[in-house]
Computed example of a mutant assay.
Amino acid sequence: MKKGIHPEYNEITVLMSDGTEIKTRSTMQTKDGVYKSEVDSKNHPFYNKDQKLQKKADRIDRFNKRYGKK
């Protein structure tokens, strides 16, 4: 590998939205070595079967944009 062209590869802690902590290594630059994730598999609709609810909400929003009163 060439010297001086690669980013630093440091250990960081990933703090999930439910409080779970995972230690990993990354090239991500963080101030205090902690990355706070807003979305994970416990609260994302794709993973927790709430995808139908999200699709329905999108359809309702699309309908209201087209035909809703202003």
Score class of each variant (00 low, 15 high):
residue 70 K to V: 05
residue 56 K to L: 14
residue 39 V to G: 02
residue 69 K to S: 12
residue 6 H to A: 14
residue 36 K to R: 14
residue 27 T to Q: 02
residue 37 S to N: 05
residue 34 V to S: 06
residue 55 K to G: 04
residue 10 N to I: 01
residue 51 Q to H: 04
residue 23 K to H: 06
residue 23 K to F: 00
residue 15 L to R: 15
residue 69 K to D: 07
residue 39 V to W: 11
residue 48 N to I: 01
residue 5 I to E: 13
residue 70 K to N: 13
residue 31 K to T: 10
residue 6 H to F: 13
residue 49 K to N: 13
residue 53 L to G: 03
residue 37 S to D: 03
residue 69 K to R: 12
residue 11 E to V: 09
residue 31 K to R: 03
residue 39 V to Y: 10
residue 24 T to W: 01
residue 55 K to D: 14
residue 70 K to E: 00
residue 57 A to G: 03
residue 57 A to L: 08
residue 28 M to W: 03
residue 62 R to N: 08
residue 44 H to T: 06
residue 43 N to E: 09
residue 67 Y to E: 03
residue 18 D to F: 10
residue 49 K to S: 13
residue 47 Y to Q: 07
residue 32 D to S: 10
residue 32 D to L: 04
residue 23 K to S: 02
residue 40 D to I: 11
residue 31 K to G: 13
residue 55 K to H: 08
residue 67 Y to R: 15
residue 57 A to V: 06
residue 1 M to N: 05
residue 25 R to H: 04
residue 37 S to H: 02
residue 59 R to M: 04
residue 69 K to M: 05
residue 10 N to Y: 00
residue 14 V to N: 01
residue 63 F to T: 12
residue 10 N to E: 14
residue 67 Y to L: 03
residue 38 E to P: 02
residue 64 N to H: 09
residue 51 Q to I: 07
residue 60 I to E: 11
residue 8 E to T: 13
residue 13 T to W: 03
residue 39 V to S: 05
residue 5 I to P: 09
residue 50 D to K: 15
residue 21 E to G: 03
residue 16 M to S: 10
residue 19 G to K: 09
residue 30 T to Q: 02
residue 67 Y to S: 11
residue 12 I to D: 00
residue 52 K to I: 07
residue 60 I to G: 02
residue 49 K to C: 00
residue 36 K to G: 00
residue 11 E to G: 07
residue 31 K to N: 13
residue 32 D to K: 15
residue 43 N to R: 07
residue 41 S to A: 10
residue 20 T to N: 03
residue 45 P to C: 08
residue 5 I to C: 13
residue 40 D to K: 04
residue 31 K to Q: 08
residue 52 K to G: 14
residue 24 T to V: 04
residue 34 V to E: 06
residue 10 N to Q: 04
residue 60 I to F: 01
residue 19 G to Y: 12
residue 21 E to K: 15
residue 39 V to Q: 04
residue 45 P to V: 01
residue 29 Q to H: 06
residue 12 I to M: 03
residue 32 D to W: 11
residue 55 K to S: 12
residue 46 F to R: 11
residue 45 P to T: 01
residue 70 K to C: 01
residue 35 Y to M: 09
residue 66 R to F: 01
residue 43 N to G: 08
residue 2 K to T: 11
residue 29 Q to N: 14
residue 47 Y to V: 07
residue 44 H to F: 08
residue 6 H to S: 11
residue 28 M to C: 12
residue 68 G to Y: 00
residue 2 K to S: 15
